[in-house]
Amino acid sequence: MIAYGEKIREIAKKLLAEERVDLIIGFKQGTLPLMTEPVMIKEPEKTDQLYWSSFCSMNLANYLPKRKEKIGIIAKGCDSRNIAVHIVENQIQREQLYIIGVPCTGMVDRRKIQSLVDGKEVREAIESDEELTIKGNGFEQTVKKIDYLQDNCITCMHRNPVIHDELVGDLVEERKDPDPYDDVKEIEELAPNEKWELYSNLIKDCTRCYACRNACPLCYCPTCFVDEADPQWVGKSIDPTDTMTFHILRAFHCAGRCTDCGACQQACPVDINVRLFTRKLNKDALELYGCEAGLSIEERPPLDTYQPDDYDKFIR
């Protein structure tokens, strides 16, 4: 996957030089070893800034809504699904986009790497196809990337872009994992009070910085309900009920639309696995409506359509 960088730069340069797009949205190398920064490039000569690594974990579809230009965008499997969601939800037009698809073998979780070295500072990271070598003061360690993938990448069933105009490499094999929802099933087994305790504990450190919401491509409402001032729907303090209200509503607003790209979890500054909220809803959308978000630009999301055979066992 690390060879993708060269190909991305080549494609981007060509697209800009031939004026087939006005701009490219991609990643540039971060100022820290395990980070990258989303970047917008407008001039062909600046395309050498574009970069690819196993730390391109943010979802670039987040930068599309309401843009008017013709855009070249780099898209992993999950990004491409969120682009599809945007197209379905009229946030961007298919014709505006030139999707540079990246067959993805998974993003490495920077926090897992950091806990591997017990919070010591990683000062250098060198990547090969399979391995990652990290160096810092007094340590050097080489690990297999596959052992340190983001949780959502471990269970990902759509590593290849679902829509694309060009690919930067050969398609990768999709996982045949029959069941990616083991963690959700465990929670489903819990009694209501145990569930409540689990979720209350999960968010006890939340600072309501909204990084999870803002890293999410789905959260493009002009004004989020938590930011409404008149009427004000929810308090702004870190009162546990208010914080829980935010998390529950955020998650439910993503129901049937979430691609489990993991950007929310990666963005959280206090390491909350906010995906535990959305994953149950993804499982329900799949099991009850046969829907996985963003696999097609034709299909409306399950909660804004009605089919006579929709699941209705909960109604008596």
Partner: peptide, 10 residues
């Protein structure tokens, strides 16, 4: 450009 306007930094 990349900023998602979250409150992490602040």
């Amino acid at each position: 450009f990349a900023c998602i306007n979250c409150g992490t930094c602040t």
